[in-house]
């Protein structure tokens, strides 16, 4: 029998983000991007290309949600508001002003960023359930606005088609171009969020998740950081919205239907909240379930509910969290051998 080892001191080996760590992040970023790009390229032959575009857009959205929920620890039940805002402002720009898709994407991002700035000012003051419900209320207001008072512009429930011209290599009519562009956007978002979450700012928002009062004691203005995070997440969700509008060439109020929010929460949880890879894994898993299971199983909402319950009671770490645990388990004996 092996004798019991003295417990290792549980001091985190990484005291803070030093310059070396930032360099390491920079180097690792290339590997991360390569892995993601090759994973999605591998998916293309397995499932059709337009589905993969869908998957990637949803992954961008799940990443933006993960920033709020996984990293900052605030559950939002109205994140689709930003996706819908991006989609609608992009679509309306193309319909009424100019048919340039790149410009429309920029407009969509800008509008959802502005919306994030204003909604964030109100919303970040609340915590817990109030945060979730206020987001839900704003989402409901947005859904209602496009459905009814702005009916003349947005065509109400029917929605409207988007006919964008091609610009440079961005050609919404060509699936390959669209795929490459969406992949580029996903990699860009991933890289940006990776840098953001491993910076001192990222550590600060994770500390807000742990205990906001203590962070405030340290002298940080937590409202500002929460607001900033909310705005960034809203902007990224807006990007996902513009991409989905260009991809479907069609917008209707369903893009910001309040009940759709459960999808992204599910994706984030099943993938493992608080990890960027987790958001991507969860996004792909959710899209697989909703695309394929919905065809084969009639009662798929029930399945979704049951699996959410399972996750809450048994599987909180999610896919990526379990992989990390396994990885640790597999690696630990090797590290301990020379020491013991």
């Amino acid at each position: 029998m092996e004798e019991a080892k003295p417990p290792k001191p549980t001091i985190d080996p990484k005291p803070g983000p030093s310059v070396e760590m930032m360099m390491a992040v920079k180097e690792r970023a290339w590997i991360d991007l390569l892995v993601i790009a090759s994973a999605f390229l591998l998916l293309v032959p397995i499932i059709s290309i337009h589905r993969v575009i869908d998957f990637m857009i949803f992954c961008i959205f799940a990443l933006s949600f993960d920033l709020i929920y996984g990293y900052m620890g605030r559950l939002s039940f109205g994140h689709l508001l930003f996706l819908g805002t991006g989609a609608y402002s992009c679509g309306l720009f193309i319909k009424y002003i100019d048919k340039n898709p790149l410009l429309a994407i920029l407009v969509g991002i800008l509008v959802s960023c502005l919306l994030g700035i204003f909604v964030g000012l109100v919303v970040v003051r609340a915590t817990g359930a109030c945060f979730a419900l206020m987001n839900l209320a704003f989402n409901f207001i947005g859904f209602f606005l496009v459905l009814s008072p702005l009916r003349d512009i947005t065509k109400g429930e029917d929605g409207f088609g988007i006919h964008a011209q091609s610009f440079w290599f961005l050609n919404p009519a060509n699936k390959t171009n669209m795929f490459l562009f969406a992949l580029l956007c996903l990699l860009l978002v991933f890289f940006l969020l990776r840098r953001l979450t491993s910076s001192p700012y990222g550590i600060l928002i994770r500390s807000i998740k742990e205990d906001e009062t203590r962070v405030r004691f340290l002298g940080y203005n937590t409202y500002f950081y929460k607001w900033l995070t909310f705005t960034v997440a809203g902007t990224v969700a807006g990007l996902a919205g513009t991409l989905s509008a260009l991809n479907y060439k069609f917008v209707n109020p369903n893009v910001m239907d309040v009940h759709g929010n459960v999808g992204v929460v599910f994706a984030c949880l099943i993938g493992g909240a608080g990890h960027l890879y987790g958001a991507i894994a969860g996004g792909v898993a959710y899209m697989m379930i909703s695309n394929y299971l919905a065809i084969h199983i009639l009662r798929w909402e029930m399945f979704l509910g049951l699996s959410l319950l399972m996750i809450v009671f048994r599987f909180r770490k999610g896919i990526w969290g379990s992989i990390l645990t396994l990885w640790d388990y597999w690696r630990r004996p090797k590290e301990m051998q020379p020491a013991g």
Binding site: A129, V265, G305, L308, L309, V312, R316
Partner: peptide, 13 residues
């Protein structure tokens, strides 16, 4: 968060 999600799951079912 978890109570929210679990009870929402019951609603879905």
């Amino acid at each position: 968060d978890y109570t929210f999600i679990a009870t929402f799951a019951i609603t879905l079912i």
